[in-house]
């Protein structure tokens, strides 16, 4: 139980996937103009990330047992790409309302490196939470908390950018540059969480 709590805190705050590990920055810049789109994107990422991590967890077991784990990258990205397609088709049939909310973001997720990053992560590092590689339960928790962390960063950032539209920004800094600098300051704020992990561990 403690292990799970540590995973959650580590992934959501301390090692935030967007602000401290720089994964998924392209959509982070792209869809963060409005809070609503940011929320939609976060939901879609969470959905795919958890399923992808679960599926690739067993794929990796299969690859290792066949002694061909050097094919990890190829296998994972193919699984993720087809998974995204499948989720899209299933969602369309099963829950049209959810598809309405998340549908437009789904195709973007294949090239969102958070999903592949987290899927590879669970087999390689444990962020110091446990000595052993993650089991399947911890892997799913890890995926979910990374998705939450990503959503948190994305939503806060979108809120800031909505406010930024009203601010008087110098001509040269308008648009992307000021967004980067805002993200930098937000990352600075997230660095404040760094001690948290230690005090709990």
């Amino acid at each position: 139980m403690v292990e799970y709590i540590l995973i959650i805190i580590s992934a959501v705050f301390v090692n935030n996937i967007a602000l401290s590990r720089f994964l998924g920055i392209c959509p982070f810049m792209g869809v963060s103009n409005k809070v609503n789109t940011a929320l939609g994107m976060s939901g879609a990422v969470a959905f795919v990330m958890v399923i992808a991590t679960l599926v690739t967890f067993y794929i990796q077991k299969l690859l290792v047992s066949c002694g061909i784990d050097f094919l990890q990258t190829i296998a994972f990205i193919l699984v993720i790409a087809s998974l995204v397609q499948m989720v899209e088709i299933v969602l369309k049939k099963v829950s049209p309302s959810l598809y309405q909310a998340l549908g437009v973001f789904l195709p973007l997720i294949t090239t969102n490196c958070t999903v592949l990053g987290v899927a590879i992560d669970v087999h390689n590092l444990t962020m110091g939470v446990s000595e052993e590689p993650y089991g399947v339960g911890a892997a799913v928790i890890y995926a979910l908390s990374n998705a939450i962390g990503y959503g948190l960063a994305l939503t806060i950032f979108a809120g800031l950018r909505e406010q930024l539209e009203l601010a008087d920004v110098p001509e040269g800094m308008k648009g992307v540059p000021v967004a980067f600098i805002t993200a930098g300051i937000l990352a600075l704020a997230f660095m404040g969480f760094a001690g948290l992990f230690q005090s709990i561990a």
């Binding site: 444990t126 962020m127 000595e131 992990f197 230690q198 561990a201």
Partner: peptide, 8 residues
């Protein structure tokens, strides 16, 4: 040990 700032 895993008592480092970023874990192990």
């Amino acid at each position: 040990n895993k008592k480092g700032y970023n874990g192990k």
